[in-house]
Simulated scan of single mutants.
Amino acid sequence: MRTRIDEVTAHDGSFDVHLWLPDAGRGPGILLIQEIFGVGGHIRGVAGRLAAHGYVVAAPDLFWRLRPGWQAEPDEAGVAASLRLSSGFDFPQGVADCALTMAHLRGLAEVTGGTGSLGFCLGGSIAFMLATQIEQDAVLSFYGSAVPDAAGLMERIGSPLLLVFGGSDPYIPRERVAVVERAAEGRPNVRTHVEEEAGHAFHNEAPMFHHPAAAERAWEVATAFLAEHLPAPPPVRGDSFP
Score class of each variant (00 low, 15 high):
187 R>S: 12
60 P>N: 03
87 S>R: 11
44 R>Q: 13
144 G>P: 05
235 P>L: 12
216 E>R: 04
187 R>E: 12
148 P>V: 06
236 V>H: 00
77 A>K: 05
42 H>I: 09
132 T>E: 12
207 P>N: 04
130 L>A: 04
110 E>M: 12
4 R>S: 15
181 E>I: 13
96 A>G: 13
200 H>Y: 03
95 V>W: 03
118 L>W: 00
29 G>S: 08
10 A>N: 05
73 E>M: 08
28 P>H: 10
235 P>D: 08
161 L>H: 04
165 F>D: 05
98 C>M: 12
184 A>H: 10
225 F>Q: 08
4 R>A: 15
8 V>Y: 07
78 G>R: 01
143 Y>M: 08
131 A>V: 05
159 S>A: 15
69 G>K: 06
154 M>K: 09
84 R>D: 15
148 P>F: 03
22 P>Y: 08
159 S>H: 08
168 S>R: 03
149 D>C: 06
128 F>H: 13
88 G>P: 11
240 S>H: 05
191 R>L: 13
84 R>W: 02
236 V>N: 03
21 L>G: 09
146 A>R: 14
78 G>P: 03
99 A>L: 12
153 L>A: 15
105 L>F: 07
222 A>Q: 00
205 E>R: 07
82 S>D: 09
104 H>N: 07
77 A>C: 04
181 E>P: 14
187 R>C: 11
221 V>N: 02
208 M>K: 07
136 Q>V: 03
134 I>P: 10
119 G>Y: 06
157 I>W: 02
214 A>R: 00
199 G>N: 05
14 S>K: 06
77 A>T: 14
164 V>F: 00
163 L>H: 13
45 G>N: 08
96 A>C: 11
117 S>T: 14
228 E>Y: 02
18 H>L: 08
24 A>F: 00
142 F>S: 01
91 F>M: 13
8 V>I: 14
202 F>A: 05
233 P>I: 07
149 D>F: 09
148 P>D: 10
43 I>L: 15
222 A>D: 00
141 S>K: 01
3 T>Y: 07
34 Q>K: 07
221 V>Y: 01
113 G>Y: 01
2 R>S: 15
92 P>G: 06
235 P>W: 11
23 D>Q: 12
46 V>D: 05
193 H>P: 06
39 V>Y: 04
8 V>R: 05
165 F>A: 14
21 L>C: 10
122 L>E: 10
56 V>D: 09
199 G>V: 10
29 G>R: 00
175 E>T: 14
60 P>T: 06
177 V>H: 07
149 D>A: 15
228 E>H: 13
74 P>G: 04
13 G>T: 10
199 G>M: 10
142 F>E: 02
58 A>K: 02
222 A>H: 00
